[in-house]
Nucleic acid binder design. Structure first.
Lengths: 219, 219
DNA sequence: AAATGCATGTAACGCGTTACATGATTTT
DNA sequence: AAAATCATGTAACGCGTTACATGCATTT
């Protein structure tokens, strides 16, 4: 049932920082919260129309020459109220779907080198993110002296920082486990069917051993 | 363009562990990789039909009484080949969308107690997950003595473990930052419009200071 | 010369969940 | 008595991206 709207509150959040066009919103999201949020034009423009229809924002057309008119949206009192209501509602957890982990789960059926190169790619990606989060963090901490509210922004950046740190640590660990596994399997050679069968019984065993229904359904 | 199929390879991965019905697949996903993957029946049954049409699996109907026939799917040689091809392709990173962080980003517009209670809820959730990951990990480490391939499964569990640890650490940090911020704002009182305006100029400043386009587009 | 930025929007498609329909058996 | 498990599937809906259409100005 739930499946609550996410784009609308996101747009209201951005509009709560000042009047903006759809184009501005997209750019500002990318620049400020791009590490944990994104909106495409295909979401933004239709949503803005709805937001105006519901009285949560107003539009003002500003003619330009050579370009399409700017349509500047401004949040209304009702919009502020709607945003606050959303802020006070418990957040839904993000859906979980991680392709790399799925590949690893049946990883013995792949060439170890391929998995290793996937991990290397990930590691490089997270390393560069780590640097950027560090820069961002230093900037915000400096600004907090004048503007205590910068702390809210900082919290989101810290989330990203701790997240990439953990992922990076995992990449390194996984790579070293993979190396070990490569050696172990070279020694005693078993055919894929036999290995598959053993994984299959491991699954059954896991369910018996780990009490009710092992890992969490979600939440 | 890309937008590559994710359900089909997921089903093939599960079928590579042995013949299963659609129902079995759903249950096994929940039990083993539920912490990073999910499939609903609305995905599974149509996808299985396609998989059979493409020759990646075969079906066998097993009549039962009182219940619908079991339709047992078994992966074919072609299916194995398709799975391997997918395993060797670089994984796409999961889309990022975190509602809690979005709420925090404009958090000065909310009642601090509400944010605090969101964080408390998250913290409890991650704490319980942490325990379960620990159990799972101990089990898999024990099993690795007989079955070295259990290491692949372990890698996915370690990912979850490190992830929830990082989230937990973040929750605690965020809660303590929030407490500080509550004190700071009590002292010098500023109206919401003024605070909003300051955040807005902070955004502009951030973009000037942080070189080209700050945080990563994605990847 | 080509790419990027500014600026609007729509149409088509794919992804994914939820609810519904059906119904016996087993557990709480 | 109610709920969960087993077992299949479909229809409707919402979410979200990509590609397209248009076009000038600026930067590389």
């Amino acid at each position: 049932m739930a499946r609550t709207n996410k784009s609308k509150p996101a747009l209201l959040a951005l509009l709560s920082l000042g009047p903006k066009t759809g184009y501005d919103i997209q750019r500002d999201i990318r620049r400020t919260i791009g590490h944990f949020w994104s909106e495409s034009y295909g979401q933004i423009y239709p949503a803005l129309r709805l937001i105006v229809e519901e009285g949560l924002a107003t539009v003002e057309r500003q003619p330009q020459d050579g370009k399409p008119d700017r349509k500047v949206y401004a949040i209304t009192q009702q919009g502020h109220a709607a945003l606050q209501a959303w802020l006070h509602a418990a957040p839904e957890p993000p859906p979980v779907r991680n392709e790399m982990l799925l590949k690893l789960f049946v990883g013995w059926q792949a060439a170890p080198d391929a998995l290793m190169s996937h991990l290397t790619g990930l590691k490089e990606h997270f390393s560069s993110q780590l640097v950027q989060f560090g820069d961002f963090e230093r900037f915000l901490k400096r600004e907090m002296r004048n503007n205590p509210d910068a702390m809210y922004w900082l919290m989101t950046v810290r989330s990203g920082h701790l997240y990439v740190q953990a992922r990076l640590q995992w990449c390194e660990e996984a790579m070293s486990l993979l190396k070990k596994s490569m050696k172990a399997t070279k020694e005693k050679k078993l055919g894929t069917p036999a290995r598959t069968k053993r994984m299959s019984s491991l699954m059954a065993l896991a369910h018996e051993v780990l009490n009710p229904d092992s890992l969490p359904k979600q939440k």
